[in-house]
Amino acid sequence: MSKTPETDGAVPAKSVNPMLKSALEFGPIAAFFAAYILLKDQSFDIGGTAYDGFIVVTAGFIPLLVASTLVLWRLTGHLSKMQIVTLVLVVVFGGMSVWLNDERFFKLKPTLIYLLFGGALGFGLMRGTSYLEAVMDTALALTREGWMILTRRLMYFFFGLAALNEIVWRTQTTEAWVYFKTFGLTAAIFLFFMTQGKLFKDHSLEAEEETAE
């Protein structure tokens, strides 16, 4: 049995309580949203410089995400490439927002994340392979054609999310963007996979085996 790039030579991920895992993955985002709602209209004078609530909340979100990611890695012994890339971009662009007292850098982060993921999937497609399969093959059992179709759709979807994030943060208020980032993007990804039911059914390995019989 061949190994995927995600697991080749790596120690298998340890099992962890699903509730704890979800809390570590989504807890920092929920905390960011709650803190923003509480502090959005406040201003803080730190070292003679005025920082609005969004910047202060961003400053707290960065170490919280780092800590939760490290705990998740310690418990499971594994981090996905998506988690690593997200953490790096949060630290870099969130840090720039705090350092320069400019919220635009943090708002740009989702755009770059989705462009990177969409670009990586597109690069794999040009090579005739599905990098998505390497990441999700343990979660979905699809034919090669199914993986290629899903990868192509997800690539376009990621590019669409990148464009949508640019439109929202450049044309809407910070509060509107926070709601969009917290709920809109999450809901969009959930709906995307919910609408792929026919693909999962038509290109499942079980359906192919039944047809072959």
Rank of each mutant, 00 (worst) to 15 (best):
V90K: 02
V90T: 14
V90N: 09
V90P: 03
V91N: 12
V92I: 15
V92T: 12
V92Y: 02
V92G: 07
V92N: 04
F93I: 09
G94K: 11
G94D: 08
G95Q: 04
G95A: 07
G95I: 08
G95R: 06
M96L: 15
M96I: 11
M96Q: 11
M96W: 09
M96V: 10
S97A: 15
S97R: 06
V98Q: 12
V98W: 13
V98I: 13
N101L: 06
N101H: 02
N101Y: 00
D102H: 14
D102I: 03
D102P: 10
D102R: 09
E103A: 14
E103V: 12
E103W: 03
F105T: 05
F105L: 07
F105N: 08
F106T: 12
K107E: 14
K107T: 12
K107L: 14
K107G: 14
L108M: 13
K109H: 00
P110I: 04
P110G: 03
P110D: 03
L112E: 04
L112S: 00
L112F: 06
I113W: 07
I113Q: 11
Y114F: 15
Y114K: 04
Y114A: 09
Y114H: 14
L115T: 05
L115P: 02
L115F: 09
L115Y: 03
L115S: 04
L116E: 01
L116Y: 07
L116K: 02
F117T: 11
F117A: 12
G118A: 08
G118Y: 02
G119S: 13
G119R: 11
G119A: 13
G119D: 12
A120V: 14
A120M: 15
L121W: 12
L121Q: 10
G122W: 14
G122D: 07
F123I: 15
G124P: 02
G124I: 07
L125A: 11
M126E: 02
R127Y: 03
R127S: 11
R127K: 15
R127G: 10
G128A: 08
G128Y: 09
G128D: 10
G128E: 10
T129F: 10
T129L: 01
T129A: 08
S130P: 05
Y131A: 09
Y131C: 03
Y131L: 15
L132S: 03
E133H: 12
V135S: 09
V135F: 13
M136H: 05
M136T: 04
M136V: 10
M136W: 11
D137C: 13
D137F: 13
T138G: 06
T138N: 11
A139Y: 08
L140I: 08
L140V: 05
L140D: 00
A141S: 15
A141Y: 05
L142A: 01
L142G: 01
L142I: 07
L142H: 03
R144E: 13
R144I: 01
R144P: 04
E145W: 01
E145A: 14
G146W: 06
G146Y: 08
W147K: 05
W147D: 01
W147S: 04
W147I: 05
W147N: 00
M148N: 00
M148P: 01
M148Y: 00
I149G: 00
I149Y: 00
L150V: 10
L150R: 06
L150P: 03
L150F: 10
T151L: 04
T151E: 05
R153E: 11
R153F: 03
R153A: 05
R153G: 00
L154C: 08
L154E: 11
L154M: 12
L154N: 11
M155K: 09
M155P: 00
M155W: 02
Y156K: 03
